[in-house]
Design a protein around this nucleic acid. Structure first.
Lengths: 117, 117
DNA sequence: CTATGATGCTTCGATAACCGAAGCGCAAGG
DNA sequence: CCTTGCGCTTCGGTTATCGAAGCATCATAG
């Protein structure tokens, strides 16, 4: 299929610099990407189960994302489904404070607390 | 403009659950969102400067994102430009391990275009 | 040998998201 | 007055995503 997502060292959407973090932001800023990583970090899954878990995400996009993430070396397809690589697990680990943050976000939404420069 | 992005506690794209982290993943998984937060965390900026920094991102999308992020209480418009709120700064803080990870990613992908951030 | 059901994945027309050049209304400066 | 910069909108064109249907393959069952 030749999807070929963003990789560090190469210009990406919104940045010619090739700075690694920009490639990461591009990759992660595509629909479903973080969700897929998130789901796979909980429990590895095959194509269709992944699709089910993500509330019927379209199969074509799932294929594209799996291609991008695989060619970025974040996951691999194994007999029993897609797994995160060590690199992929590290990414999820790097992203994990997001869960705690989101809970705080939920709490503070509706409040009128803490807002200044 | 009434764009109104995802908020915790409300069903979002790809998840009916309303779980906070799903709302966060939806919000952050939109084009330019993380980049905008990233840029504003470095230095606050007005509309046009922000547009310049993000290599000419389209103004219409920028408006939409600023609207979403503002109504999510992650940033505010002040006389001297857009600023992160305390909540927004915490988000960026939660996302900050991404920078270190991306450098490792770059190393392990074989590409050595590791510029300074 | 069917047939049935599950898998990973593709196709393709329809829809939604995004792009970007142009322009608006406003405020400040010359 | 004229210009400059601002936040922001408009709108026609482009790209990304959707989703139902289908294909090839493998395993199990009849």
């Amino acid at each position: 299929m030749e999807a070929r997502g963003p990789r560090p060292g190469v210009p990406v959407r919104g940045s010619e610099s090739g700075r690694p973090v920009m490639a990461a932001l591009d990759l992660l800023g595509r629909r479903w990407t973080m969700r897929i990583l998130w789901e796979l970090s909980q429990v590895p899954a095959g194509f269709r189960e992944l699709q089910r878990r993500c509330e019927r995400m379209s199969s074509s996009v799932l294929t594209t994302r799996l291609d991008e993430l695989t060619s970025a070396r974040l996951l691999t397809l194994q007999p029993d489904g897609y797994h995160l690589t060590a690199l992929g697990r590290d990414l999820v680990k790097a992203l994990s404070p997001l869960d705690a943050w989101s809970r705080r976000w939920a709490k503070e939404t509706g409040d009128m607390t803490t807002e200044e420069s």
